[in-house]
């Protein structure tokens, strides 16, 4: 086993974890752009996706695709309820209020999951078998291909949605200037709710596609949420390619970090986060403030 093979393995492993971070980061960015809120409950939506997937598949005995779909729908519904009852009632929200509310919401959602499904770790079966696939001296599981495929589809999907549909454009408008968007007749509230639906659904999908590999339990959302947040920060909170690249970058650096000196894996993510917040708060890829959607 030579060094190049090891390196390929580190990078491939990193990309597959990074793809997940990218999806979660995208969820952060979408809500941030339409509401200006950093939704710290995003990680909990990911957890809900995974846990609901487990619930529908194991407890209700549904087929995996149906369980997948139901889990996404129910999580999106949770997103709506969360927006309706935790975010909207605030008349004049300050960023601090919002941060505290979403953190409180995340603790609440975690508690609900713990009471509903217990403290155990659960697992879903892989979507198509466990036979490793060799690729340039490294190995992957079919599930990794699923992760890549779904991530790419979702990214293309959101891109198309924002640039080619009326709703998407309306959401972009809210991001640029909420008041002006309201003045031209865009229902800002509906757009905010839309953004919650979108990002909780994306989060749920991320939660389900990784559950066969990484397992899921009521408290997986914390770490995943932070990593996704980190990806979004690297990408300058853009709900497009920069956040995706941020996620992939983070995943690869973590994997390399763990490969060369394990124990510093999480430190890698947080050191990057801090450095970027210090030196390039607008993100790695943008120049000054620019359009973010």
């Amino acid at each position: 086993m030579n060094l190049t093979d090891q390196l390929t393995q580190y990078i491939l492993s990193g990309l597959s974890t990074g793809a997940i971070y990218a999806l979660i980061g995208l969820g952060f960015a979408i809500i941030y752009n339409s509401t200006g809120i950093i939704n710290f409950a995003q990680g909990e939506f990911v957890m809900f996706g995974g846990m609901l997937g487990v619930y529908f598949f194991h407890k209700q005995g549904l087929a995996l695709p149906i369980a997948f779909l139901l889990a996404v729908v129910v999580t999106a519904l949770c997103g709506v309820i969360f927006e309706r009852f935790a975010i909207r009632p605030l008349r004049r929200p300050t960023p601090m209020n919002m941060v505290i509310i979403t953190i409180g919401g995340s603790i609440f959602l975690r508690g609900v999951a713990m009471i509903a499904w217990g403290k155990d770790t659960h697992v879903l079966p892989t979507f198509s078998g466990d036979e490793p696939i060799s690729f340039a001296g490294a190995t992957l599981l079919p599930q990794h291909l699923w992760i890549f495929a779904i991530t790419i589809l979702l990214i293309i999907g959101t891109k198309l949605f924002f640039s080619h549909t009326i709703s998407g454009k309306a959401m972009s408008a809210c991001a640029v200037n909420r008041r002006a968007a309201g003045l031209v007749g865009i229902d800002v509230r509906r757009m905010i709710m839309f953004s919650f639906i979108l990002s909780s659904a994306i989060g749920a999908m991320a939660g389900i596609i990784i559950a066969p590999l990484t397992m899921t339990s009521y408290d997986v959302g914390v770490m995943l949420g932070l990593k996704g947040f980190c990806a979004a920060i690297i990408g300058g909170m853009s709900s497009g390619l920069p956040t995706v690249i941020g996620g992939l970058l983070l995943g690869v650096l973590e994997s390399l970090g763990a490969g060369f000196s394990s124990g510093y894996k999480d430190a890698v993510a947080f050191v990057i986060l801090l450095l970027i917040l210090f030196f390039r708060p607008q993100g790695l890829f943008s120049r000054g403030s620019s359009e973010r959607v």
Binding site: M1, N2, L3, D5, Q6, Q9, Y10, S13, G14, S16, T17, I210, L213, T214, M215, V220, M223, S255, L256, G257, A258, G259, S262, G263, K265, D266
Partner: peptide, 20 residues
């Protein structure tokens, strides 16, 4: 002699090192 974090979700990096 390697370690991993209690919440880690992918240990292929450490295992790749062991494989080598």
């Amino acid at each position: 002699d390697d370690t991993y974090g209690p919440k880690d979700t992918d240990m292929t990096a450490q295992l790749t090192k062991i494989r080598g």
